[in-house]
Write a protein that binds this DNA or RNA. Structure first.
Length: 552
RNA sequence: GCGCCUAUAGCUCAGCGGACAGAGCAUCGGUCUUCGGAACCGAGGGUCGUGGGUUCGAAUCCCUCUAGGCGCGCCA
């Protein structure tokens, strides 16, 4: 990538300056290259001399001049200039810029891909909602975050596996089973009482009705414990399928659906525990079994086995992470959790460390709360009690692409209001349509060219020299950097801003430069440009999981 | 009490050590005899929550305080 080459260029020049005695022989700070926001400062800039001046005691301007004198720029660089108080600014040659159009067209859908990951295996685990109820908007946020991150990491050269962890055992599942049984009996006119810790949402009634309709009253004829278990498993399976189809609707897919229960069925839980026990991180006290996280700097220990001998969710998580790192040997594991799991991060990292794995290999992204509202009316999204607005209803109301874009456009760190009224009102005037419109517009131009039988394969891109053309190319060349940034920071929201910028620059170009005109040579050149822009736009939309429509 | 997140233009949010702080929406004013006006061009609008500190340089880093959110279960 060009940025990398500029870094090398400056590093080398600084090294030479040292050899010539123009700079003292000290360890040089890392060369950084920025994108100046003001185009007057060129395409790239470095504040390296300013940083260096501190330790060297030489004026930054002098350093900048010395370094620039020693650079031997490649064919892509037009000018390297020094600007006060000590910046080095680079501008790109316009014929190099225009040549990139051919590279983009040649790369096609692979444009922007990187080799950052070098094929290392990264797991992204997300959503992983208890299958005791339907998904709501908050879950949608995590889902979109995860699937987009998966796309970007794959494009950055990682071997990505997306995974949904199914909590199919434990207290909450048990409560779900008993609730379903009660609702089922009620369906069949039996005066059953809902458990106090049960799930009271109306979806449970619907679920029970569905099962009663399909299975009749056969669960009444077997022992109740047996019935609860069979009925529960059936209900759970249905809930999982519903979750699966809701996610599919959102364009979110998984490579693996991982069962929590399987950790106990195949002894991985026992293996993980004995590993920790050997390392002396497991102790018995107060009748329960604890993970001694205080030994690892945590402020308290955590129960893994209750006094009744049943494992906590934390026990499962220990086994699960043992499985991720040691059984399946992922190089990196990324977990996306809701803000309410924040406190779980440090002890999970402690566990990973205790298992002998570098805790840095576990990265947790916390997505902050989403509150759903309709105008001023707050809508509760608690699954436990009462009714909720499901993710599906929200998608039906505002549309998949708008939904994805909306969730993606805010950083995971900041909480957000999802105002249904606003989302619908804005949907006609939504940034996502603005971006998609640019794509459709290009498609329409290319259709016209085809109708007129214009073959532009031999178009000469060096004819492109107008400002709007070059600005568009410059913006297209930013995508690889965006992909790299998102892959490194795990912050996909940058994509939405880039998409809007790219669309803006295209629309502006479109207004100022007629593509298909009487000037045949220019027409061909511009068709190439426009097709390349379509490639970049489509790639950006694809990474975000959104449609790139030919017409709309 | 402790931990994490947030506070930037009227609204929703980017920017997170560098050059005059940006975008969308909203407001106001312009642009249509040609490829899709779901478009384009322009204007106004900000002591970057408060007070300190570090630095040649701070919205960005450190500390104080204020406000809001989420945690601190033998729930997940």
């Amino acid at each position: 990538m060009l940025k990398q080459r500029l870094i090398e260029l400056l590093t080398q020049a600084a090294g030479e300056a040292q050899q010539m005695g123009k700079l003292p022989s000290i360890a040089l700070p890392e060369v950084t290259i920025e994108r100046p926001q003001n185009p007057e400062y060129g395409d790239y800039a470095s504040s390296f001399p300013l940083k260096l001046a501190r330790s060297v005691g030489v004026s930054p301007l002098t350093i900048a001049n010395d370094i620039v004198e020693l650079t031997t720029p490649g064919p892509e660089i037009d000018t390297i200039t020094v600007a006060p108080p000590g910046f080095i600014n680079f501008t790109l040659k316009s014929d190099w810029l225009t040549n990139q159009i051919d590279s983009i067209l040649a790369a096609g859908n692979a444009y922007g891909n990187a080799v950052l990951g070098q094929g290392s295996r990264v797991q992204v685990e997300f959503v992983s909602v208890n299958p005791t109820g339907p998904l709501h908007v908050g879950h949608g946020r995590g889902a979109i975050l995860g699937s987009t991150l998966g796309n970007v990491l794959a494009s950055a050269g990682y071997d990505v596996e997306k995974e949904y962890y199914i909590n199919d055992t434990g207290n909450q599942v048990d409560a779900f089973y008993r609730s379903l049984n009660a609702r089922y009996q009620q369906c069949l006119n039996i005066d059953a009482e809902m458990p106090s810790d049960g799930y009271f949402g109306s979806y449970m009634v619907e679920l029970a009705k569905e099962i009663a309709a399909e299975e009749g009253d056969r669960f009444l004829t077997i022992p109740e414990q047996e019935a609860i278990s069979q009925l529960g498993q059936l209900g759970l399976e249905k809930m999982i399928n519903q979750i699966k189809s809701d996610l599919e609707l959102l364009g979110v897919s998984f490579d693996v659906w991982f069962s929590e229960r399987s950790l106990y069925d195949n002894e991985q839980y026992q293996t993980a525990m004995s590993l920790l026990r050997q390392a002396d991180y497991i102790r018995e006290k107060e009748g329960a079994t604890w993970f001694v996280s205080t030994a690892l700097g945590e402020d308290k220990d955590n129960v893994v086995l209750r006094s009744d001998g049943s494992p906590t969710y934390f026990a499962s998580d220990i086994a699960y992470h043992y499985n991720k790192f040691i059984e399946r040997k992922f190089d990196r594991v990324i977990n996306i959790w809701g803000a309410d799991h924040q406190g779980h991060i440090s002890r999970m990292k402690a566990v990973v460390g205790a298992l002998g794995v570098n805790p840095e290999r576990l990265e947790v992204i916390i997505s902050q709360m989403v509150t759903l509202r309709r105008g001023n009316e707050l809508i509760r999204i608690s699954k436990r009690s009462g009714d909720i607005i499901t993710l599906r209803e929200v998608i039906d109301e505002v549309g998949v692409d708008a939904c994805r874009f909306f969730f993606l456009s805010r950083s995971a760190d900041s909480q957000m209001d999802f105002d249904l009224e606003l989302a619908k009102r804005e949907s006609a005037d939504n940034p996502v349509y603005y971006v998609q419109y640019a794509h459709a517009r290009i498609a329409s131009i290319l259709r016209l060219a085809q109708q007129r039988g214009v073959n532009y394969e031999d178009g000469d891109v060096s004819l492109l020299s107008k400002e709007p053309e070059l600005i568009l190319i410059r913006k297209m060349l930013l995508l690889p950097e965006i992909i790299e940034i998102v892959a490194n920071t795990l912050e996909p929201h940058h994509l939405t801003y880039y998409a809007q910028d790219l669309a803006t620059v295209f629309h502006s170009f479109y207004k100022q430069c007629r593509v298909i005109s009487r000037n045949e040579a220019l027409t061909k050149a511009r068709l190439k440009l426009v097709e390349a822009a379509k490639v970049v736009l489509a790639k950006t939309l694809q990474l975000m999981g959104m449609a790139a429509p030919e017409k709309m």
